[in-house]
Amino acid sequence: MNADYLSSLIAVVVLGLIAYAGVAMAGLNGFFGVFVPYLALVLFVIGFTRRVLGWAGSAVPFRIPTTCGQEKSLPWIKQAKIDNPSTKTGVVLRMFFEVLLFRSLFRNTRATLNENGRLSYKWVLWLWAFALMFHYCFLLVVLRHLRFFTEPVPGFVKMLEGVDGMLQIGLPVMRISGVLLLVAATLLLLRRILLPKVRYISRPADYFPLFLIIGIAGTGIFMRYFTKVDVVKIKELTMGLATFHPAMVQDGIGALFYSHLFLVSILLAYIPNSKLMHMGGVFLSPTRNLANNSRAVRHINPWNHPVKVHTYEEYEDDFREKMIEAGLPVEKE
């Protein structure tokens, strides 16, 4: 047992219970169904903008890309054009692979001592695989939720639903992405809890978002397949939210839905204040989005103070006669 993940787990459970009890016992439907989601949205938009503008204002005077391959050198030496880009095209390709395929996680290695006591590094792909699975399933789940926020539901959402439910297991049909999201988040959590080296560097800020997402996926799956909720009434509420005509649906929606919505609201408000800001930060990492052309182009620090210099020529002009008198050599007679 570890206080770091236990406290995060308890926090998520308590948050879920607060919303559940608030609706089931105190009847705070309007608070948890309308006020909290809007508050979360405002906090998300303001917080996200502030974080990104803060980064935009930060100084990046020099090129600091991480060089993961041979840099551009003499013509017969082969350059790693994506891992050590020297042009804008190279940078765009590098960012493309980083953002969409998590190329830097693909290079993950694990250091171990082998039987002879020698340090060895092993190429380990688990983190990359779980991360890909997690992020793309989450994306699919979010896109599928557009069915609650649009009327008529756009064709691409229906297409995604069709592909996602193609196994036709049970009714309502099982959505593959939802189940895989829960599996992937659990695997990422187990990675942090079970691997001693990863556990050593894991803090509540790492566990909390994982438990939160597990909680969101869990309540969602529970609502869809086990304790059913009235989907039409939920859409009435969510459509009201999306169109700024909040509809007060007083009853008929299970309290579990409000737990789900509350955890999503917490997640939304939490994003700008946490490591989850990597969704914006990945585009702005100077170690990834700069071309390594320091040897080809001179980068001058833009805020260098203009230094007043007094050259030797000027010095000689000032003191020429005295220097000649003293017998010192001068350049100009």
Partner: peptide, 18 residues
Amino acid sequence: FTIFTFPIWYNHGAAAPP
């Protein structure tokens, strides 16, 4: 933010009746 607010501008601010 344009992509993020898709539901808001897609519905033109009017919810279809349930």
